[in-house]
């Protein structure tokens, strides 16, 4: 790349009259004042600018011819690249051909954030305790946790999840709800074909009907 830079600066003849004064200004800038940590791309500009002024009159015809030849060579290089692509399109092609490859080659990464889901196990149980931490963590109120009070067998009152309402239409897939959930009850699914015609259809209730909280294994069970 630098070689190209040098070469091309060489062929810059003094035709930029508008900038001739600016060129002189450039000459006054001393490179190297910025310590050893900088790449001095400017150096080649500088040396070549000086050279150019010296040789301007002497070699104008020579430069003219050289410029024409350089132009053809550089353009031919670009043409060769595109020709290579044109010929080897089968190999270099990058099209995904999406609707055709949805069942075959499509690659959606495992972690892709498509939508929030509340996984249920085979007994139709989920892990959400309706603590509303996710609701609080969500920056744009995409989550509504509606809970209800029920009475357990031993007469205690308990708050359980009634509806886990998820507004996919306003979710920004920021992962904060999942990060905030102490129970690891929710997950991100990598689904991606979510478009619908009516945005009210994007309001989901994530807990399945009749589902209930998965009982935490008691300490005794855990040990055994």
């Amino acid at each position: 790349m630098f070689c190209i830079g040098i070469y091309s600066s060489l062929k810059k003849t003094g035709e930029l009259n508008l900038y001739s004064s600016l060129q002189e200004e450039k000459l006054n800038i001393k490179p190297g004042s910025n310590g050893t940590n900088s790449v001095k791309l400017g150096k080649c500009h500088l040396i070549l600018a000086q050279k150019k002024i010296k040789n301007k009159q002497m070699k104008s015809l020579f430069n003219y011819i050289k410029e024409v030849i350089y132009a053809f060579v550089s353009l031919a290089k670009g043409l060769l690249l595109t020709l290579r692509y044109f010929i080897t399109i089968k190999k270099v092609n990058i099209t995904e051909e999406y609707p055709n490859n949805r069942t075959t080659t499509i690659s959606v990464k495992e972690r892709f954030y498509g939508e929030v889901v509340l996984p249920h196990n085979e007994n139709n149980e989920h892990k959400c305790t309706a603590c509303t931490l996710c609701q609080m963590a969500c920056p744009n109120n995409s989550i509504q946790i509606i809970s209800k009070q029920i009475e357990t067998e031993d007469g205690k009152k308990k708050r359980v999840l009634d509806k886990w309402v998820y507004h996919l239409d306003s979710c920004t897939f920021c992962y904060q709800c999942i990060d905030a959930c102490p129970q690891d009850a929710i997950e991100m699914k990598n689904s991606f074909e979510l478009s619908v015609y009516d945005r009210t259809k994007l309001i989901y209730q994530l807990n399945r009907p009749g589902s209930k909280l998965k009982e935490k294994p008691t300490v005794k069970e855990q040990q055994s």
Partner: peptide, 9 residues
């Protein structure tokens, strides 16, 4: 031609 040169079909 445009497509092939631009890596697409």
């Amino acid at each position: 031609v445009a497509g092939f040169m631009q890596l697409r079909w």
